[in-house]
């Protein structure tokens, strides 16, 4: 490379371009890293605020940090909990809650059951993913035991009642009078696909 004849940009231009390009490339890297950092950040944000309707007990093994039956039952008010469920495409199962709706006092220990049936002629492993609506209620919806804590295996044609034991904590906002708990049941072919 030879230096050009009477060209305009003065000599300090070159190193300054190089410095600038390095900085800009760093910005690109930072933006890329920011995108990936959003994944754990989003997870933490949802855990803290319950924004995406995930309940605190929703962890493999269950009971994570769950205080057992609190002493105080708030009998001054009633909360209605509605139960629903969806079987996702690819899972030939039927599911329905045996209790469609339940009136309870915050702090009361309750148990409900879902009836789940494998309508196919093969053994299938499924995983239920819960979601609580409104999202603000999620962090006060405490599951003590849930069929969603484990993967469920159903033999061909097998039907099973799957239990859920829970408490709506008394700390729940007084404005929330109705909570909907919804399950989405997924086909889990590989056993390693476990819910976090």
């Amino acid at each position: 490379m030879t230096s050009g004849p009477s060209q305009a940009p003065t000599s300090p231009t070159q190193p300054s371009i190089r410095r600038l390009v390095v900085r800009l490339l760093l910005m690109v890297t930072a933006a890329f890293a920011f995108g990936w950092a959003m994944v754990p950040f989003y997870d933490v944000l949802c855990k803290v605020t319950g924004l995406n309707g995930k309940t605190p007990g929703f962890q493999a093994g269950g009971l994570a940090g769950a205080a057992p039956a609190p002493s105080a039952i708030d009998r001054t008010r009633t909360v209605t909990v509605e139960f629903t469920g969806t079987v996702m495409p690819g899972l030939p199962w039927d599911m329905r809650p045996l209790t469609a709706s339940l009136d309870l006092h915050p702090g009361e220990l309750q148990q409900v059951k879902y009836l789940v049936r494998n309508t196919s002629d093969r053994t299938i492993v499924g995983q239920a993913i819960p979601s609580v609506s409104p999202g603000q209620a999620a962090q006060h919806f405490q599951k003590l035991d849930c069929f969603c804590f484990r993967q469920q295996t159903l033999a061909p044609g097998e039907a099973r009642e799957m239990p859920l034991t829970f408490i709506v904590k008394p700390e729940i906002d007084r404005d929330i009078r109705q909570i909907t708990l919804s399950y989405a049941f997924y086909n889990i072919e590989e056993p390693r696909r476990e819910a976090r």
Partner: peptide
């Protein structure tokens, strides 16, 4: 590759994709 960034069945969240 079997990750679950956006797969609810594996603990991911489809809404995260919309945010990104």
């Amino acid at each position: 590759f079997g990750t679950h960034f956006f797969q609810a069945a594996g603990g991911g969240d489809p809404i995260l994709f919309q945010h990104l």
